[in-house]
Simulated assay, not measured.
Amino acid sequence: MATTHIINVEKRNDEGKGASRRLRRAGYVPAIVYGGELKPVSIQIQHKDVWHASQNEWFYSSILDLSLGGDVQKVLLRDMQRHPFKQIVLHLDFQRINENEAIRLRVPLHFLNQESSPAGKASGVVITHELNEVEVSCLPKDLPEYIEVDLGELKTGDIVHLSDLKLPKGVEIPELRLGKEHDNAIVIAKEVREEIEAAPAEGEAAAAPAAAAPAKAPAKKDEKK
């Protein structure tokens, strides 16, 4: 079962750029909650709480419980504006969810047992992660915080695709409904020795053009008239 993540918020009455600047100076982040049958509501959250939450993976891929004086609304983070170079969150957008309707959200992939796999132990093999997250569709109650990818049996030359993922019950990948051409690679274990051997040595590459060039004809001496 997914962990509950509670974020305490306060209602915001003043709006506009000037009000937002005052809030930020006071250590708060302006935000808005929208969606569902209720009207959009302007809220404010202590910056230290937002900053702490933003350092965690779950903040971007989990259902959040916004608590306004004990009144909890389940939401998803839909947008976060950051300062260009300062460690400051400027604004947040949250969307309410209906617990009886499927949602689509990108969740991170956690790769397990890569180094202990046959490919991980082999020399001259590079394992690349083509994807680090995947979009899933499910009811809110079934939303996983992440999906594990066990690479314990990965061998040289193997390719792990989206269709190889072991998804939790009630969770699907919408992209796979579009056909086999959308069954993208997630992990590739590729041997690089052949590429290195196939590439000409630096000295050989330089010598080849010289060998191919025709020899220059000797310079003619001036004939005496």
Rank of each mutant, 00 (worst) to 15 (best):
A2V: 09
I6F: 06
I7A: 01
N8F: 09
V9Q: 00
N13P: 00
N13K: 09
D14M: 11
G18D: 10
A19T: 13
S20T: 11
R21V: 15
R21I: 14
R22Q: 14
Y28S: 08
V29Y: 00
P30R: 09
A31L: 06
G35D: 12
G35Y: 09
L38T: 15
K39G: 08
V41F: 04
S42M: 11
Q46P: 05
Q46R: 14
Q46Y: 03
K48D: 10
H52G: 09
Q55Y: 05
E57D: 15
S61M: 07
S62A: 14
S62G: 09
D65N: 15
S67W: 06
G69M: 05
G70F: 10
V72K: 10
V72R: 08
H83E: 11
P84W: 08
F85P: 10
Q87F: 09
H91Q: 13
Q95L: 14
I97S: 03
E99L: 12
E99Y: 04
N100L: 12
E101A: 14
E101R: 15
E101Q: 15
I103T: 02
I103S: 04
R104A: 13
R106D: 11
V107F: 04
H110S: 06
N113E: 08
N113P: 04
E115V: 09
P118C: 07
G120V: 04
K121Y: 04
A122L: 00
S123L: 03
V125C: 02
I127C: 00
H129V: 05
E130K: 15
E130C: 08
N132D: 09
P140R: 03
K141P: 00
K141A: 15
L143D: 01
P144T: 00
P144F: 01
I147S: 06
V149R: 02
D150T: 06
G152W: 02
G152T: 15
E153G: 04
E153T: 15
E153I: 12
K155Y: 03
D158M: 04
I159M: 05
V160W: 01
L162K: 10
D164M: 13
L167K: 02
V171P: 01
E172F: 07
E172C: 03
P174Y: 09
P174S: 12
L176V: 14
R177H: 11
L178D: 06
E181A: 10
A185F: 03
I186R: 00
I188N: 03
A189V: 04
E191T: 01
E191C: 01
E194G: 07
E197V: 03
A198G: 11
A198K: 12
A199V: 01
A199H: 02
P200C: 07
A201Q: 11
A201E: 14
A201S: 14
E202N: 12
G203V: 14
E204P: 00
A205W: 09
A207V: 11
A210Y: 05
A212G: 13
A212I: 01
P218Q: 11
K220F: 07
K220I: 06
E223S: 11
